[in-house]
């Protein structure tokens, strides 16, 4: 069954390795796409396209990687994510681990939240909802 997390992780690992041209062994659940795997902004789109194809799903714009949110003055001020922004982000990135980020919510370190594991969590919820 595709929805088992280990299966999802396997596919996600392959997808990310291909999109970022890295070795699959480098792609670990805790790997940050930006910090550890060198992803740039266009790579996030590439990953979304590949995930849509691999899992035969539609990922609405901004649902997995909320890029537009970061240029919204309500959510980001002087380089920091506001309380409202944090609330909004948490709603969208339910699979992310917020403990480190909340201590110092710099936009520049937001990329650290985008991990392989977060994508697996997102897909696991998404696929469960689709199959329900």
């Amino acid at each position: 069954m595709q929805n088992e997390k280990s299966d999802i992780l396997k596919t996600v690992t392959t997808v990310i390795a291909q999109a970022l041209k890295v070795d699959e062994a480098q792609v670990q659940p805790g790997s940050s796409l930006i910090r550890d795997l060198g992803a740039e902004s266009i790579d996030f789109l590439d990953i979304v396209f590949r995930l849509e194809k691999a899992f035969k799903i539609k990922i609405p714009k901004g649902e997995l990687f909320p890029e537009k949110l970061l240029t919204d003055a309500r959510f980001v001020q002087e380089g920091k994510v506001t309380a409202a922004g944090l609330e909004e982000l948490k709603k969208r990135l339910s699979g992310a681990d917020w403990t480190q980020f909340e201590k110092n919510p710099q936009v520049s370190s937001l990329g650290d939240l985008f991990t392989v594991g977060m994508i697996v969590e997102y897909l696991s919820g998404k696929l469960a909802a689709t199959n329900r």
């Binding site: 266009i42 396209f49 590949r50």
Partner: peptide, 8 residues
């Protein structure tokens, strides 16, 4: 470009 991205 979406297709080209996926093809590399």
């Amino acid at each position: 470009c979406r297709q080209m991205l996926m093809q590399g």
